[in-house]
Every structure is written in structure tokens, then in C-alpha cells.
Design a protein around this nucleic acid. Structure first.
Length: 431
RNA sequence: GGGGGAAUACCAAAGCGGCCAACUGGGACGGACUGUAAAUCCGUUGACUUAUGUCUUCACAGGUUCGAAUCCUGUUUCCCCCA
């Protein structure tokens, strides 16, 4: 029962905790919550750390509670943010909350009869009834402004000179009250969160102590960093989302596959539930043959399977092999149309009628003008790329811009145009 | 309000009458090598059916000149100094 802390510790997921938490957990099943801000209609992989924390908590036999901040989302957490945040309207927020709830349900076990099944709450449910007057009388009375101002997250904003509105300043009190509410009504004695949440969480434990003399606990997980100093979870395309509509399972898989060696050991501990022995074995394999990238492959497999599905993972794997492996025109031709389209999901597609296709005189026109400059912004660029050996059609290098078009259409209708290694476009020739 | 300076391609930054589609660095993209990596090396980076060719570019609008990113005038924006 006490393995939760140890589990987090060896996984490098323990930043900080209140001193007597370990003892508290050893007494039997406990309940902990972690909040998610509904700032978008999908979670992204930055949220995954929190999700994994709850998951480990549940696996250790405790009861996880996921809180979606329908109320706090209306305010915006100022912690370590440099500027005042824009408020989201209620409609957007409702939508976001609903979407996030659905995603969370994939990770935690909300079903079944076991006593430690997960539950989901929305702080809008209790905050919306609370009048301002009641709130400042019942809650605000217990916490001093001095206390609130001494928080690092708030102090930074004051020192910057950017200031923060009263609205944002109140945030920690509302979050603190959430904790109190859950502690009081759901017997939830622990709050988990990212290290930037420490201040807010502790306001909660303080509130519980002052209002009811109760004791509650805090635990934070470290912020995920990347060895090269860039922000974790971002690609050129923006955040990596869990929603397959926003980030395709293929792109998602690729993100993990491209994790650097330095980060791989860290990530496999945090984002997969593989046990210590397995991970250490994989690390050994990786050290022996780094070019095999067993760690990255394993992370990508585990996380993609967990977030999407085994089928999606296999599809992504197959797509990756075709896109990056030594595949040939034959390999492409061997795919059936459905698989082909799935592999190239998200790749820009250009429709061309049979008549137009027949009139195209050379490769240069085909890849530039006739396909609306999808892959190249000008003929000059296309020509230079071709001469530089950077263009392939159906996986075969094109070397002459003036070359005639005599390619076999894949599945009778597609041409795969490729610029460099990672940029593709599909030309679909229709009747 | 007064005085001074600056505006150049994605960014930084040279050029200060013809040799300028504009040095150089970064970035981006491509190639080789590799592990779909890092490092390294090479190429491309205004447009045009590649051309010792044409066209459009150096904040904007005019002007001087055979010729202007470069000189002049006005406009706009930004920075600095003094009130």
C-alpha cells in the first residue's frame, strides 16, 4: 500500500511533498486529486504527467480523483505566468470540460466495484452556487493577504511590475477551497500537481487546517524538461495533443520516437508503466546499440497504445516504416487504398482530373504549378530541389526537371510526391 | 516641445553613385554521412519553362543622374539625449 511514494521516487516523478505524507499513505487507502485546467478542448502531453501520477496512485491501491476546473478555468491560474490571462467564456469552457472529461476516462478506471475506482469532479459544481459574499466571509476570512502575497508565483508577478488583477490573485484561494471541499465532502486528503502548483496546493492544506483543524497533504511532480533546453511537448506544429483530431496518432507516435537519447531514460519512467527491471534492461540494450533506439521505440509504443489504441499504434508503426524505411515503389503499390490513405493521413492532397494530368508535360510542372505549389512555393524552388536531389515521386528520385511523366499511379489514382525526408504530398488523379 | 540617429531579404548585420538580387552570420530547406539523432561537410534561400537573359526588390512618395540601396526633398515609424 505504501509503494506509491517509492514508485514515484524511482521514476523521478517526485519533486516535493509534505513530510508526513508517507506515513499517511501507509495507514490505508487514501484519496488524492489532481486538477486539470480546461484551457483547451483537449489535453496535451504536458498533462500526461499528471495523468500518470493519478494512474500510479490508483495502481498503488489508492483512490484517484480527477478535477476539471470548470470554475477555476474561468479565472486563470497566474502561477508563473508573465501576463494577465484572457478569460474564457462559459460556453467554450463547458465544451472544454466535457472533452477533457472524456479523455481522462481513457486512463483511469472509473468503472467497476473496487473501492479505489477513480472519480471525476468539476469544481464548477460547488463553486457556482457560492456567492461572493459568502465566499469572502467563510473562506477569505481564514487566509491573510500577507500569506497569499508571499507565494513565489505571486511574488514574481509583483516584482516584474506586470501586476496581476484581483481576479487572478484570488485564484489560489479558490483552488485552496476546492481542496477543502473535497477533503470535507469526499474524504480527499491529498492534492497532487506539477511543481508550479506547490504554492496553490499548500494554500489548500493551510485552509483545511485553519477552517477545520484538519490535516491534508501535498505532493508535486517535477516539470518535464528537455535536455536541449527547449520546451517539452512542442513541435513545429504546436502542442502535441491527445485528441487524434488535433494530433494524428502517427504524429503522436513520431513525437515520442524522436525523443533524444538524453531524455529517453527519463521519459520512459514517467510516461510508461513498465516496471523498473524492464526499463533497466531496455536501457542496457539501448546503451549497447544506441542506433537501434530501443528506448524511443518502446516509449512510442507504450504511450501511443495507451493514449490511442493498439491498432493506431500498429498503423503508425507501419506508416513510419514506409515513410522512413528503405521502402520502394513496390512497397507503396502493395498497400491497399485504405491503408495507403491511413498511412498518409494528414498529408496534403491535391486533386487532379484525368484530362489535366494527361496534359502535364514534365515533372517540374507536376510538382509545382499543377499542384498549386503545395510542396514548393515557386518553380525556381522546385527546380533547385530537383537538381539538388531532394525530390522523389513514388519513392523514386527525380533528377530531371524536364523529365516526362510516366509513373504508375498507385492504387490506380495516386502519386506520392516527396520533398526531402519528411515532406509529402499526394496527387490524386480522378476521373 | 527642442536636438541627434536609424529604417536593407525570415532574423541580425554589411554596403554609402556603376563591379548589387545585394558581403557575412544565424535560421530554414535540401544533399552526403548517420539512428527519422547529434556533430561535420556541401548546396539552396526574390520571381520567371536556367537565362553570361528579363522582371520586381533595400520603410513610403517624389526628385537629381546616362545610372541610386547609396545623393536631395517630403511623409511615416522607431531609438537616444535635453525639457
Amino acid at each position: 500500500m505504501n509503494s506509491f511514494i517509492q514508485e514515484l521516487r524511482w521514476r523521478g516523478m517526485l519533486q516535493d511533498m509534505t513530510p508526513d505524507l508517507e506515513e499517511h499513505l501507509s495507514k490505508g487507502m487514501a484519496s488524492a486529486y489532481l486538477g486539470f485546467d480546461p484551457t483547451a478542448d483537449s489535453l496535451h502531453i504536458g498533462h500526461l504527467v499528471g495523468v500518470m501520477t493519478l494512474l500510479h496512485f490508483q495502481r498503488s491501491g489508492h483512490q484517484p480523483v480527477a478535477l476539471v476546473g470548470g470554475a477555476t478555468g474561468m479565472i486563470g491560474d497566474p502561477s508563473f505566468k508573465s501576463a494577465e490571462r484572457n478569460l474564457l467564456d462559459k460556453l467554450t469552457l463547458d465544451h472544454n470540460v466535457a472533452c477533457i472529461q472524456k479523455q481522462l476516462a481513457k486512463f483511469l478506471d472509473f468503472s467497476g466495484q473496487q473501492p479505489n475506482k477513480a472519480s471525476l469532479v468539476n469544481n464548477y459544481d460547488w463553486m457556482s452556487q457560492f456567492t461572493f459574499l459568502d465566499f469572502i466571509r467563510e473562506v477569505g476570512k481564514h487566509i491573510t493577504v500577507n500569506y497569499m502575497m508571499s507565494k513565489d508565483s505571486v511574488k514574481r508577478r509583483l516584482e516584474d511590475g506586470n501586476g496581476l488583477s484581483f481576479t487572478e490573485f484570488s485564484y489560489q484561494l479558490i483552488q485552496g477551497y476546492d481542496f477543502y471541499y473535497l477533503w470535507k465532502n469526499k474524504n480527499c486528503s491529498i492534492q497532487l500537481g506539477g511543481s508550479d502548483q506547490w504554492g496553490n496546493i499548500v494554500t489548500g492544506t493551510e485552509l483545511i487546517r485553519r477552517m477545520d483543524g484538519g490535516s491534508a497533504f501535498a505532493l508535486t511532480v517535477p516539470l518535464i524538461t528537455k535536455a536541449d533546453g527547449t520546451k517539452f511537448g512542442k513541435t513545429e506544429g504546436g502542442s502535441v495533443w491527445l485528441d487524434p483530431e488535433k494530433t494524428s496518432p502517427y504524429a503522436f507516435y513520431q513525437f515520442w520516437l524522436n525523443v533524444s537519447d538524453e531524455d529517453a531514460s527519463k521519459y520512459i519512467r514517467i510516461f510508461t508503466v513498465l516496471d523498473q527491471a524492464t526499463i533497466e534492461r531496455l536501457e542496457k540494450d539501448h546503451a549497447e546499440a544506441p542506433h537501434q533506439r530501443v528506448l524511443q521505440k518502446e516509449i512510442a509504443k507504450e504511450v501511443t497504445t495507451m493514449v490511442h489504441s493498439k491498432v493506431e499504434y500498429e498503423m503508425a508503426l507501419k506508416a513510419s516504416e514506409i515513410l522512413f524505411g528503405k521502402s520502394s515503389t513496390e512497397d507503396l503499390a502493395s498497400l491497399d487504398e485504405r491503408t495507403f490513405l491511413a498511412v498518409f493521413d494528414g498529408v496534403p492532397q491535391v486533386q487532379l482530373t484525368q484530362e489535366i494530368y494527361a496534359t502535364i508535360e514534365n515533372v517540374l510542372d507536376l510538382v509545382s504549378e499543377k499542384t498549386n505549389y503545395t510542396l514548393f512555393s515557386s518553380k525556381g524552388e522546385a527546380r533547385k530541389m530537383i537538381l539538388g536531389g531532394g525530390v522523389s515521386i513514388n519513392k523514386e528520385k527525380v533528377d530531371d526537371p524536364q523529365g516526362k511523366i510516366n509513373y504508375t499511379l498507385l492504387q490506380g489514382k495516386y502519386l506520392l510526391v516527396q520533398k526531402g525526408k519528411k515532406n509529402y504530398a499526394i496527387v490524386a488523379v480522378t476521373a
